[in-house]
Nucleic acid binder design. Structure first.
Lengths: 257, 257
DNA sequence: TAGTGGTCTAGACCACCTC
DNA sequence: AGGTGGTCTAGACCACTAC
């Protein structure tokens, strides 16, 4: 039992009070000055304690307002059904899912020609630095930034499917468009990772310290080669991904926690 | 272009120098005193800047030593193959995978009877607080803490499969043991989430600030009901999960980034 | 012993929000 | 105007690591 530093003790006490409901989700914590008096510590020490809780994603702070206990509303994303090879894929699946959940979807969209970054190139089995089409999507739910999605299509595919490079949405969905050209996605490989956001990501997704991002990379394959690579960056506090594998007939994917 | 606070500028400069290789993975940063002189800032301001990088998982610090740039060695986990309904499951799959990767696996194991927490109970479709068997595993790779895994089996299953409650490993694997009793897992549902570790998790996995955990919940189903719920807590900086869905025959799951 | 980061203080000034 | 958090300083002392 070694002595804990004072700022840790403060963080521990406050964490316990948040856990047991003394300060419920969405409620405000006492001000730094009040806590300073309560714990007989300098304001800076109190700040260190609060900072620990911020880094753990338990509370947020805003200038002039105070510290607020985070609420967690997670959105479920069924990755194995999401784009079920028979379904449309892009904007549509997102909008449909969100609308079905009684929420309001919104997204901005951008298409550009880029040089392929290494991470994507290895997955598409093309050369790093070669050309590819990037279709980029910034998604919101109820006007809260939710995720960004960047899909790369290799250069060679463009010759067969020129509409991929056109700005603006493809009404019927890109997967369906490609299928109509005889290019069918018959399987995909998903990779999931997590880390703290880069400053750019933190800006786009409006996340503060203490909230990680989830990185979801989906590489789609036709019968003979990779045809696309989609990197989705999700706010870790708002999203949960699901996969259903095997025979789950008769099982409702029931939620809640 | 609003003026950035000084500690942010310091963090940005150092981040750029880390990115461009001035300070490579594993190398040491200059001391706080040196940085303080370089940036003409007080030691505390420099510490704020360094602290920002720590929270982003870019560097770590240790008393008496200094700040070190993090290295990232990720371990790939194929979740859709991992326990392929035909394969053995528990300890074995982990040890096999790790050994195949040329690393040294190690794990501690514990079995206990517990009251079922709500999160697990809803998934197993049993009452919160009812009894269940918890088989808990703490896993290491090359003596670095890697993940913890907690599998709950419902009370009713115990009557049919008493060995689940016995301490010690089940040699042939629990899935195989259950199958030999006519209880076959015919499908599962995975849920993936990410967040910052709780203090307990941080202790068990030896992670500092700036490294999130990935939570992987797998609920296994027999033909008529859930038979187990496994919660795996993974160090976010060391693990990546993969799912392969659809027809990927002829495709090697190629890696590297 | 010297150098590193870890903790803590007291006080100053600024930026933002609410009234 | 008054209260909130955000930034910054200067200095003190402690704990750990290296030599």
């Amino acid at each position: 039992m070694s002595k804990q530093p004072k700022y840790q003790q403060i963080a521990d006490v406050l964490r316990r009070e948040i856990d047991n409901g003394t300060y419920g989700p969405g409620s405000r914590l006492p001000s730094e000055a009040e806590l300073s008096a309560r714990f007989d510590a300098s304001r800076n020490t109190v700040r260190s304690g609060l900072n620990a809780l911020v880094s753990q994603g338990l509370i947020t702070s805003s200038q002039g307002l105070g510290y607020e206990v985070s609420k967690h509303e997670v959105f479920e994303l069924n990755a194995s059904r999401f784009e079920n090879l028979t379904f449309p894929q892009n904007g549509d699946a997102f909008s449909t899912d969100v609308t079905n959940a009684g929420r309001h979807p919104h997204q901005t969209f951008r298409v550009e020609l880029t040089t392929t970054p290494e991470y994507v190139a290895t997955r598409l089995k093309i050369e790093t630095g070669s050309r590819s089409v990037l279709r980029f999507c910034h998604r919101f739910v109820d006007n809260v930034p939710w995720s960004t999605q960047a899909t790369h299509y290799p250069d060679w595919l463009l010759a067969e499917a020129p509409r991929l490079a056109e700005p603006g949405d493809i009404a019927e969905g890109t997967t369906r468009y490609l299928k109509s050209l005889g290019i069918e996605q018959i399987g995909y490989r998903d990779e999931l990772a997590t880390r703290m956001p880069t400053p750019d990501e933190a800006r786009l997704l409006e996340i503060g310290a203490g909230v990680p991002v989830m990185l979801w990379t989906r590489t789609g394959y036709s019968h003979d080669r990779p045809i696309r690579c989609t990197i989705t960056t999700l706010r870790g506090d708002l999203n949960r991904m699901n996969y259903e594998i095997g025979d789950l007939s008769g099982w409702d994917g029931n939620e809640s926690e």
